[in-house]
Design a protein around this nucleic acid. Structure first.
Length: 455
RNA sequence: GGCGACGUGGCGGAGUGGUUACGCAGCGGAUUGCAAAUCCGUGGACACCGGUUCGAGUCCGGUCGUCGCCUCCA
């Protein structure tokens, strides 16, 4: 029986007991999306993983005692490129994308963070931090309007990602930016042309580099030190390494985040998800295909957050089935609680697969009230039934008529016809269930509207 | 080349020294006109080779294999 929360800290590379800096104000910062495109399921993984951690912290320490910040990156060259290419202005792109992001993540049942700061609202804080870094000689401006962080000045540089400066230098790509003192120095500020978004600064009109926003926003909202910093494992280097460098050096060398948590990567049907392979799967794609939020959550959480996750539709269908089974035993209201076995699993570095195992045990042992409570904690809510079906009322009526025909055939013992109707419906993605006097139906995951219309 | 992760039954996936994870699929049974759903039962695994130990998926060493980061990326 565990009594404390253990978390794997990427910084120390071991599981550690989580001790909050302030029990009355647990502070967590998670790197959020760059808003230029619809969120894909890779974006959804940290959202859902840290949603569970957020819920767990609230459960352990009280809802009002946890502050969760997830930033929105709305200054970025990918956004600029999209604006240039599409002819749509930057604000329209970011506003629309943020709206999509909220809709999609709300659909997934992720609790909104307490703060969702946007980079554009924190440029002055970034300039302030960069100014401080230059005045302390951790950073240097160049004649062409850049400001670089000088990695050699920070002795701990590379500690998070376990890299040594000398080794990094060997593999580094030589860029045109020969104004850098060291090829690994990273940009804090860069000059903008007239087409690019820019802000006035001591170094001329320009825009911030990517990393500085998180340091500035975290400091402004959470303070110089806070408990947990999270994000995808790909962000360890250089993003988080650079954040540590900037923040530590501009905050009197105080330790930045106490815990670093990183979620593993996501593949699709065995392949790396990438734009070049054209196997990008957005959350919106899943919604359109009528997968439930609960099944997506279940699927995402059935692999431990630090493991790589291979996204397969077969598993999603399996999740859907399990949840239907569980929801059929719904007894209590949506009271949130954690039965102790489920809690224990979560206390061990958020072992969600083990907690799901415990939920299967609760089902098996007919502890349905406990199961319901755990489901409520995980955000596994019943999928809307027939009123939610993505088929038209006409088709719905057609299905009902066919079922009526079939039942008549069954009454007259014409089982050949009855079975044919059932097979036809099944082929179109409608599953028939006879229970007692009543016949019900539901959609399978491979609904084919076209076939259904032809029946 | 550097750093790191991982290799468990058909698939998925826990388990850091001591009977069985478990889920899905399969098989057998109950139920059903037959199915579906549900319930009961059941076979099947720890990449390979050494070592430590009374005892190892679990610790140590080696081999093979897969993957990630080092460049924008959750």
């Amino acid at each position: 029986m565990k009594t404390s929360l253990f978390l794997y800290n990427s910084f120390s590379r071991i599981k550690e007991v989580f001790k909050p800096l302030d029990k009355k104000n647990i502070r967590m910062y998670v790197c959020g999306p760059t808003v230029y495109d619809r969120a894909h399921i890779g974006n959804a993984r940290p959202v859902l993983v840290f949603d569970i951690l957020f819920r767990l912290l609230r459960y352990l320490y009280g809802e009002d005692n946890v502050t969760y910040v997830r930033n929105i990156t709305d200054i970025d060259d990918k956004i600029n490129a999209k604006a240039l290419q599409s002819g749509v202005n930057i604000e329209s792109i970011t506003e629309e994308t943020i709206e999509w992001f909220h809709k999609d993540m709300d659909f997934l049942g992720a609790l909104r963070p307490n703060y969702e700061p946007r980079a554009t609202a924190y440029v002055s804080q970034m300039i302030e931090m960069i100014t401080k870094l230059t005045s302390l000689s951790f950073a240097y401006p160049t004649e062409d309007g850049h400001v670089f962080f000088e990695v050699e000045r920070f002795a701990d540089y590379g500690r998070l990602s376990n890299k040594k400066l000398g080794e990094l230098n060997e593999g580094v790509r030589i860029e045109n930016e020969d104004s850098k003192r060291n090829p690994l120095d990273f940009v804090l500020w860069k000059p903008s042309t007239n087409e690019e978004p820019g802000w006035d600064s001591p170094w001329g009109k320009g825009r911030p580099g990517w990393h500085i926003e998180c340091s500035a926003m975290a400091k402004d909202i959470l303070g110089e030190q806070f408990d947990i910093h999270g994000g995808g494992i790909d962000l360890i280097f250089p993003h988080h390494e650079n954040e540590i460098a900037q923040s530590t050096c501009s905050n009197d060398m105080k330790k930045f985040a106490n815990f670093w948590l990183h979620n593993g990567f996501l593949k699709i049907e065995g392949e790396k998800m990438s734009k070049s392979l054209n196997n990008f799967l957005t959350v919106f794609d899943l919604i359109k295909r009528d997968f439930s939020a609960s099944a997506i959550r279940y699927n995402m959480l059935s692999t431990h957050y630090r493991q790589p996750l291979d996204w397969k539709f077969e598993r999603l269908a399996e999740a859907e089935k399990t949840l239907i089974k569980w929801n059929n035993k719904k007894e209590s209201r949506n009271e949130v609680d954690l039965p102790k076995q489920v809690l224990n699993a979560l206390l061990d570095d958020i072992n969600t697969p083990l907690s799901i195992y415990e939920m299967h045990q609760l089902y098996k042992n007919e502890k349905f009230a406990d199961l319901n409570k755990a489901c409520a904690f995980f955000g596994f809510v019943p999928k809307g039934r027939k009123d939610h079906l993505p088929i038209s009322p006409e088709l719905s009526k057609k299905v009902n008529n066919l079922i009526k025909d079939r039942n008549n055939a069954r009454l007259s013992k014409n089982f050949l016809l009855a079975d044919k109707i059932r097979e036809d419906l099944l082929g179109a993605g409608i599953i028939i269930k006879d229970s007692g006097q009543e016949t019900t139906w539901e959609l399978s995951t491979n609904l084919e509207i076209k076939k259904l219309k032809e029946l």
